[in-house]
Amino acid sequence: MSTQKKVKISKQRQMTIPKEYFDALQMQDEVTVELVEGGILIKPVHKLPEGFAEQLLESLVEKGFSGQELVEKFKEATQSAGWSTFSVTEEKDTI
C-alpha cells in the first residue's frame, strides 16, 4: 500500500485518517505515534480479546513450550498484527 493522500490538520492539531487506511489496518480506538526521520509513523494498537492471553498460554504449554522459549512465543503471538496467529517453524507449533 503505497498510495499517498493529503489530509488537513485542524487548529487543534487533529487529522482524519482516510477510511480505506483505517479499514485496511483494522484500526480500533488507539494508535501509537512515533517520530521517525522525515515524518511520523502511526500504527494501530490491536487489543487482545478477553481471555485470549490465558488461552494462548495454555495452548503453548500444551505444545511443550516452557521457560524462555514460552516467553518468546507468547511475545511473538501477542505483538503480531493478527494476534490470533503467529509464524512458527513447524506445523505442530501452530495454534
Rank of each mutant, 00 (worst) to 15 (best):
M1F: 12
M1T: 11
S2K: 15
Q4T: 12
K5V: 13
V7N: 02
V7T: 08
S10A: 03
S10I: 04
Q12N: 09
R13F: 08
Q14M: 07
Q14V: 06
T16D: 00
I17S: 00
P18C: 06
P18K: 03
Y21P: 02
Y21D: 10
Y21G: 00
F22W: 12
F22H: 09
F22I: 08
D23E: 15
A24T: 08
L25N: 02
Q26T: 14
Q26V: 10
M27G: 01
Q28Y: 05
Q28R: 11
E30R: 10
T32G: 01
V33E: 06
E34S: 07
V36E: 09
V36F: 01
V36K: 09
V36I: 14
E37P: 01
G38L: 05
G39R: 04
I40Y: 04
I40F: 06
I40M: 10
I40A: 04
K43F: 02
K43T: 10
H46D: 00
H46P: 01
K47D: 07
L48W: 07
E50H: 13
G51A: 11
F52A: 08
F52C: 04
F52P: 04
A53E: 15
E54K: 14
E54M: 09
L57P: 00
E58M: 10
S59Y: 04
S59R: 12
L60M: 12
V61E: 13
E62Y: 09
K63M: 12
K63C: 06
G64M: 10
G64K: 13
S66L: 10
G67M: 13
Q68G: 10
Q68F: 14
Q68V: 15
E69A: 15
E69D: 13
V71T: 13
E72H: 09
K73Y: 07
F74C: 02
K75D: 12
T78H: 01
T78C: 11
A81V: 08
G82C: 03
T85W: 09
T85F: 12
T85N: 07
E90T: 07
E91L: 07
E91Y: 06
E91N: 08
E91A: 08
E91S: 08
K92C: 05
K92H: 06
D93M: 01
T94G: 00
T94C: 04
I95W: 05
I95T: 03
I95E: 04
I95Q: 02
